[in-house]
Amino acid sequence: MRAQETVQRLLDDEGSTLAARAGINLENKPAPLYRLLVLVTLLSARIKADLAVSAARELAEFGTAQKMCDATWQQRVDALDRGHYVRYDESTSTALGKGAQLLIDRYHGDLRRMRAKADGDLDVLRELLTEVPRIGPVGADVFCREVQLVWPEIRPFFDEKALAGARKLGLRADADALAELVEGHDLARLATALAMTS
């Protein structure tokens, strides 16, 4: 019972996903999935999460791979600057442009095609995500942590950062045990809240 109380308190205090904080209504559709990938790209730099979230909100106008690709480098820099993402604005603008082009070339701009290519294999999905410029293994974990809301085949997903947060709160650092503490639609919220705790 204590574990469920701890989890409920955590969800009450910190229980929103990073996507939700960035204004992304995550659905299994190209635009919201792409906006999540942009957020993960921003989070992959050494920058505070709230700055990445703010910049992701500013980049919402380029909410598909095609729109991001069509935007000029300067338009992307300007949006990043409006979100106060100024330290890495130029290199990130370049990475976003290259990432959008990669998605168009390989997946017709639709991350659901990447999902289909992974065919339910989490390791393959994580590897495909790291082919996107700027996204490394940690960024792939953030994406999986968030996208489990709409891609149930990867549930329950608790990366090492989320498991570290569980240990810190005295919870069992085991994905299946943590999943038993919440409903399926709350897994992404719990994983994000735990990661923010670590």
Rank of each mutant, 00 (worst) to 15 (best):
M1E: 09
R2T: 14
E5K: 15
E5M: 00
V7T: 08
Q8C: 09
Q8N: 02
Q8V: 01
Q8S: 13
L10R: 13
D13Q: 15
E14K: 15
E14F: 14
L18P: 01
L18C: 06
A19E: 01
A20T: 14
R21M: 02
A22M: 10
N25L: 12
L26E: 12
K29F: 02
P30S: 07
A31M: 12
A31W: 01
P32G: 14
P32Y: 11
Y34W: 13
Y34K: 11
Y34R: 15
R35A: 03
L37C: 14
V40N: 06
V40M: 15
L42N: 07
L43F: 07
L43H: 04
R46D: 00
I47Y: 06
K48V: 09
K48E: 15
A49N: 13
L51M: 06
V53D: 12
A55P: 06
A56L: 03
L59C: 01
L59Y: 05
A60C: 05
A60K: 11
E61A: 10
E61W: 05
F62P: 08
F62G: 04
F62Y: 11
A65G: 05
Q66R: 15
D70E: 15
A71W: 05
Q75C: 11
V77K: 10
V77D: 02
A79N: 10
A79V: 02
H84M: 05
V86K: 04
V86C: 01
R87Q: 14
Y88D: 03
E90V: 07
S91Y: 06
T94W: 10
L96P: 03
L96Y: 03
K98A: 08
K98G: 00
G99H: 06
Q101K: 12
Q101N: 11
L102T: 13
L103Y: 08
R106H: 13
Y107Q: 03
H108Q: 15
H108M: 02
G109A: 09
G109K: 07
D110T: 11
L111D: 00
R112W: 01
R113L: 14
M114C: 03
R115W: 11
K117M: 11
D119S: 14
G120F: 03
G120E: 08
G120L: 10
D121W: 04
L122F: 00
V124G: 00
L125A: 11
L125Y: 02
R126W: 08
R126K: 15
E127P: 00
L129I: 04
E131I: 09
P133I: 02
R134I: 11
G136P: 09
G136L: 12
G136E: 04
P137T: 14
P137F: 02
A140N: 04
A140C: 07
D141H: 08
F143T: 06
F143W: 12
C144R: 08
R145K: 12
E146L: 06
V147Q: 09
Q148N: 08
L149P: 06
W151V: 13
I154H: 06
I154Q: 11
I154P: 03
I154K: 01
R155F: 03
F157L: 01
D159M: 07
K161N: 05
K161A: 12
A162Q: 00
A162M: 04
L163R: 13
A164N: 07
G165L: 07
R167C: 09
L169V: 10
L169S: 07
A177G: 06
A179E: 07
A179T: 01
L181T: 09
V182G: 10
G184S: 15
H185T: 05
D186C: 05
A188L: 07
R189S: 11
L190Q: 12
A191K: 06
T192S: 08
T192W: 08
A195E: 01
